[in-house]
Write a protein that binds this DNA or RNA. Structure first.
Lengths: 215, 215
DNA sequence: CACGTTATTATACAAATGTATAGTATTCCG
DNA sequence: CGGAATACTATACATTTGTATAATAACGTG
């Protein structure tokens, strides 16, 4: 009975496992407490292995940030694609998806915030932030435009861009506070609040987004 | 010529200097890099002194968080009090103040985010967050109510509360992205975007907040 | 089944960390 | 001005940190 003392994993499998472990530790202990050793232990691996896959701990944390943001916007974009009933539904689904499970998660917000806190002084963090933010903004702008034209509202590039900025702010802010679960209100109210506010921002008739099937 | 090698400061002066130094280091290096020694050096003080004023490094960081949040909401509330032309102006000033200098600051957002990242696992952080968030929400609600009644809009407690949540999200989100200065748009556009979006959220007539003197 | 490749572990190390303690210098009060 | 109170420094210490290196075990291939 020769029990293997460890298992060799393929390049990608182990890399992802390490990134997940990094995020786990970062969510729990923050940048101050997520040490190489804790991360390795969480991944069920010896500490030395990390530097076999990454040039340094920093490089791994950067990679974990990019990995997280990819998952976040990916999930929201997915839920917009699912909605095939029309532009308003797609936008509504996209907005709602950002303030509902699984995106509404204290773990995800904690991670996001921890990384955002490094954007100012870390070039690499800033770059990842800029890219993922731009992606989100573009996505939003593309969803907004058809809805505006559908309702004969001004839909020039400048208008769409401003609206995208405002909607992005709204979504981010609600997502953050809702995820942290401070207990000051029920997070289940968030989708309705977000959609109603979005209607107002875009100057859409009431219930265009909250009850999109009536239109 | 007996040059003094150090100066004795009063309890509060030194305490505040230490808190400011803590925030400086935290903004630059995050939780991972803000060590007791760096903080002490920034404050022009020996490392040991920190534990004369605080029970532990953790306690000092917690205190720095509370200190920061007090300053943030304090500044915004101040700018609302300044506006004496009426409810709409007060609300408009409050909203705009949050997406303008000096609140629109990468340093402040970095600090805010760094702390938010710890709210999930640190009880003390969570408590400070909850308190400062509630304060902000209450402030907003009190500003919203008179504006709604002034325009004969529904202004029940539930409505005001929902609107406050939405506005808070909007403000937070714009504040964060605007402060980080990713270069995707000019932050000078933020006050107008925020006020226009706020009008929509509250279903106010156009220009009620963006040009409040016409009303 | 051997064998070479390499994914993985184990150990080592200097630097940095938070904290404890003892000593020193400043300030205030009589 | 002298001397007590204490704000402050200096040093020491055990841990933990990221990283480097050498040894080892797993796996694919012949």
């Amino acid at each position: 009975m020769t029990q293997r003392s460890y298992q060799r994993l393929g390049e990608d499998a182990r890399r992802n496992a390490l990134l997940e472990a990094t995020l786990d530790c970062l969510a729990e202990d923050g940048m101050g407490g997520a040490s190489v050793r804790k991360i390795a232990e969480r991944a069920g691996v010896s500490a030395g292995l990390i530097r076999y896959y990454f040039l340094s701990k920093d490089e791994m944390v950067h990679a974990a940030y990019a990995y997280l943001m990819g998952n976040l916007t990916g999930a929201a974009a997915e839920s917009a694609r699912m909605a095939s009933e029309g532009p308003a539904q797609a936008l509504a689904h996209f907005i709602a998806a950002n303030v509902k499970h699984p995106n509404l998660s204290s773990r995800k917000v904690s991670l996001w915030a921890t990384f955002i806190g490094r954007v100012r002084s870390g070039q690499r963090y800033a770059q990842i932030h800029r890219e993922s933010y731009r992606e989100f903004l573009d996505l939003l702008e593309a969803l907004i435009h058809p809805v505006l034209t559908q309702h004969n509202l001004p839909a020039g590039p400048a208008t769409c861009h401003s609206h995208a900025i405002a909607l992005n702010g709204l979504i981010d802010g609600l997502w953050i506070e809702g995820s942290l679960g401070h207990g000051l209100y029920d997070p289940a109210r968030l989708p309705r609040i977000a959609l109603s506010a979005a209607e107002g921002i875009l100057r859409l008739p009431n219930d265009t987004l909250t009850h999109p099937f009536a239109h």
